[in-house]
Nucleic acid binder design. Structure first.
Length: 202
DNA sequence: GCCTGGATTCCG
DNA sequence: GGAATCCAGGCT
């Protein structure tokens, strides 16, 4: 499958993120339609990006070619999923923040026991749980079917006028860039929380 | 080596 | 509003 915009320069990663809304991610029997994403620019350009200060063992995948999954562990308990974008070496990425489960509802409910259907993938770590992916997906392609994740074009296209933009969630740096994109009014979009500085321990 | 704090979620 | 709960990255 050909996704020319995926390899657009890192400087255009915001546009790439916007284009991803409505696309579908399938893994382990669950298919999710993306309703919310966040863009992270290339190395050296975005203080909020894990790749900001250059490659490290954790972020190696981000410096590879576009179309690969970058998963990372956060807060000692959660996994998040990114799609690597831009030219090889630029380390741009799009964080997949939320979506609507459009297939495999029973499996998703099993993995997210006790929550309403709208909350199944309403948040980056929740989306990962619903898809049943973790560390094993890191560094696998999301385009060619060789990994657990498969990215496919929208079944229901998203009109450009239906896309809203705002600051990224939980990110202190570059708070002024509106690089979070979501489908206006969609119930599966995560509730916005601005970055809250942690209280210092006494 | 040690220390800090995080692209979060859930519960009180 | 705060706890849970690891570890990458920065600094001593």
């Amino acid at each position: 499958m050909d996704h020319p915009w995926l390899t657009a320069p890192a400087a255009d990663v915001a546009q790439t993120a916007r284009s991803l809304l409505g696309w579908e991610v399938t893994a382990n029997g669950v298919r999710i339609r993306l309703t919310e994403v966040e863009a992270y620019a290339g190395t050296g350009e975005d203080p909020a990006s894990h790749a900001h200060r250059g490659p490290t063992p954790r972020t190696t995948v981000m410096f590879g070619p576009a179309g690969y999954a970058y998963t990372y562990f956060v807060f000692g308990m959660h996994w998040c999923l990114n799609l690597v974008c831009g030219a090889e070496g630029e380390a741009a990425a799009v964080l997949l923040r939320a979506g609507e489960v459009v297939d495999g509802l029973d499996l998703a409910r099993e993995r997210r026991a006790g929550v309403s259907d709208r909350d199944l993938a309403r948040g980056p770590a929740r989306l990962v749980m619903a898809l049943g992916v973790t560390a094993a997906a890191n560094g696998t392609s999301m385009l060619d079917g060789t990994g657990p994740l498969v990215l496919t074009p929208p079944t229901r296209p998203v009109a450009p006028s239906a896309v809203a933009a705002g600051p990224r969630v939980g990110v202190a740096a570059a708070h002024d860039v509106p690089w979070r994109f979501w489908i206006t009014g969609d119930p599966t979009v995560s509730p916005y929380r601005r970055h809250v500085p942690r209280r210092r321990r006494n």
